[in-house]
């Protein structure tokens, strides 16, 4: 099957999260969509929607402004329908994947199902990519915080026991192993105790 000519589709991404919106826009650009508009706020949405006259509006499922969009679409006269409408045909798997990823799409009536599928598939994979990125970021931040706590605790132990850095670390690791805990948890206990005993 030849790639679908999607460059004339007008797509609005309604997402106050700039990072996710950027990831989604890049994904759609790679898929050949040239006319992508990002709305980062819902203020004055009615006028801006009328200006763009999109074929598809993409929005985070958990965004409470979905109800605003329902009204705006009615008022602006665009006959857009939520993507769940496609469940009546066949693609329940696509609907479930969209729900899992947390993306909701409003699609203008009369748009071919295959074209919508391409867009929704890209959105799902990009929303998932964003979720992974966010997890990785959180993980990196946790590691950084752990590292910092361990260093501080190590300093306290070195000073209190007048031992070397390596010895202090070995000591903390031993306690962690004996108690079945992570070394960062032990480090935080030391910091809490030191705070109390100040």
């Amino acid at each position: 099957m030849s790639p679908l000519p999607d460059k004339d589709l007008r797509i609005v991404i309604a997402d106050p999260n700039p990072l996710r919106a950027a990831i989604l826009r890049d994904g759609l650009a790679e898929a050949g969509c040239a006319q992508v508009f990002v709305f980062d706020s819902f203020l004055d949405l009615e006028r801006r929607l009328a200006e763009v006259a999109p074929d598809i509006v993409l929005i985070d499922l958990e965004n409470p402004n979905r109800d605003v969009l329902e009204q705006m679409i009615r008022v602006s006269g665009a006959q857009a329908r939520p993507v769940a409408m496609f469940a009546d045909t066949s693609d329940a798997a696509m609907i479930n994947a969209a729900i899992d990823a947390g993306v909701s799409a409003y699609v203008v009536d009369g748009l071919k199902k295959e074209r919508v599928k391409t867009i929704v598939d890209v959105s799902i994979s990009r929303f998932n990519a964003f979720a992974r990125l966010r997890e990785e970021l959180a993980e990196a931040q946790n590691q950084l915080a752990d590292r910092k706590a361990i260093d501080q605790a190590k300093g306290l132990v070195m000073k209190a026991k007048n031992i070397s850095e390596d010895q202090a670390y070995a000591m903390m690791r031993k306690v962690a192993m004996n108690e079945g805990k992570k070394i960062a948890e032990i480090a935080r206990s030391i910091l809490t105790a030191a705070e109390l005993l100040k």
Binding site: P64, D67, I99
Partner: peptide
């Protein structure tokens, strides 16, 4: 939940 639209859709698809 966060919206009536979500409640409507998640009921419709059996979540």
């Amino acid at each position: 939940e966060t919206s009536w639209a979500n409640l409507r859709d998640k009921l419709a698809i059996g979540i």
